[in-house]
Computed example of a mutant assay.
Amino acid sequence: MKIRAAIAAVLTALLLIGCGHAEARIGAKPPRDPVDRRIDAFLRRTLPDGPTGTVMAARGNKLVHCAGFHPRRAGNDCDTVYDVMSITKQFTAAAVLKLEAMGRLKVSDRLSTHLGADGAIVPPDKRGITLHQLLTHTSGLPEGLGDDYEPVSRRQLIQRALRADLRPDRGFHYSNLGYSLLAAVVEHASGLPYERFLATRLFEPAGMRHTGYVLPRWDRDKIAVEYDARGRSQGTPLDHPWADDGPYWNLRGNGGMLSTARDTFAWHRALSRGSGKGGVLPKAQLRKLFTPYVREPGGSGSYGYGWAFADTRVGRAAWHNGGNDWSFASTGRTITGDGITVFWVTNTAYRGGRWNLETLEEDITFGLANYLSRRS
């Protein structure tokens, strides 16, 4: 899972775009989804011929564009299911804040408060780590402890994390491991499995019917097939080694969530509504979710709870992206201004000698963000 500080400068207005290679068996685009002809033309001009994916763009609570590109070839659309990778972290962060609003924990709690209650022996060097530090990647824990698909249980992950060497400083160091530990905390504090808590307390209230690991009733023909840089099929995310209840714990909580562009728009609306109908978090927790707490090294961006931040021409922007060896996704929303939100996802991010869609991210984002900011 990776997140690039370079995009912070690009997220001038943030959009949702999609660039991937979905298989032809994915279903057809719903006829009523909005397609902005200028966005469609921009994507055709900017993207190379070959990759396919889905793009969603919205202003405020109005969906402006939600469609695939090269859809005649691939059939990708607003309801195609993709792995959103490290964008999963914002769901984990929201789950922690939901539990805080419910009085089950505080972000100032020490990790040992929750893991120790589950019987783990927390060594002295890790007893002072707080949930806030896990959320902001300032715990000193390493980025990860193994392959995403290694069959690691919850207990094994916790044991390995507690034995891991900490970095000598507690500055920002991106840690997938930290977010997997947060998923374990969610389970302890809620008394529910991680995905079940997200489904009942976040996704269902937000109207997100096609987001999760294994709980949604997936139409497998709607799940995008991923391709590597040589064009070889890697299957769908569900074809990789998983436990019966979702990914193994090197991935759980920090990545691997499946979702659609339509559900991403629903999530954006839920975060805009506070604790009202269709909302998911009270205002106090929303302020925490969208507060930059720590500077990211090597740039002007900051990191909060599952979101990165940048000051742009249209105001403060929150964003995150994710990637693996085959796919790439990016999501962002303005905190102030016109409420522009963007999301793009591709399940063929790379093709040797022909394209690397990460390198086009700035061009695509600038163009679509500028269009959305001018659109009346």
Rank of each mutant, 00 (worst) to 15 (best):
E100N: 10
P31M: 00
T92S: 13
P48S: 10
L43W: 02
M56Q: 08
G68P: 14
G116K: 05
D79C: 11
G18M: 13
A58I: 10
V55W: 01
L15K: 06
M102Y: 06
V122L: 04
A74E: 07
F42T: 14
M102F: 01
R25W: 03
P124V: 01
A74D: 15
L105D: 02
V96R: 03
I87N: 06
L47M: 14
R32V: 09
Q90K: 03
I87F: 00
D36G: 05
K62Y: 12
T46N: 11
L115Y: 00
R38L: 05
M85A: 09
D36N: 13
A74S: 15
K106W: 12
P124G: 02
G68Q: 04
A28M: 02
G18S: 04
A22N: 11
D118E: 15
N76P: 12
N61P: 13
V107Q: 13
G103V: 02
A101C: 08
L111W: 03
Y82L: 13
E100A: 11
G53D: 07
P34W: 00
L63E: 13
R32K: 12
T54N: 11
D49N: 14
G103S: 11
G116A: 01
V96N: 03
S86H: 03
K106V: 08
V55E: 06
D77H: 15
T46C: 10
I17G: 11
D40G: 09
G50S: 09
R32A: 13
R73M: 05
N76S: 15
D79S: 11
L14P: 15
I39A: 09
A28L: 07
L14V: 13
A95C: 14
A117L: 03
R37V: 09
I17V: 12
D49C: 13
S86L: 03
K98S: 14
K98N: 04
L43V: 12
S86R: 07
R73P: 10
A101V: 14
F42D: 11
A101E: 14
G20R: 04
R73I: 12
N76V: 12
V81W: 06
L16A: 11
L15I: 15
V35H: 00
V96W: 00
H70Y: 01
H70N: 14
S112K: 07
C78L: 08
A67V: 07
K106Y: 01
L63D: 08
P124W: 01
A24F: 05
E23D: 15
T52R: 01
T88E: 04
R110H: 12
L47S: 05
V96F: 00
K98H: 06
T88M: 02
R32F: 04
L111R: 04
A22L: 11
P124F: 00
A117Y: 02
T88P: 10
N61H: 09
L47W: 07
I39Q: 02
A41F: 05
R44L: 10
R110Y: 00
T54V: 15
R59G: 06
D33E: 05
R38W: 09
R72G: 15
C78V: 06
R59Y: 02
V64N: 04
D109E: 01
C78S: 15
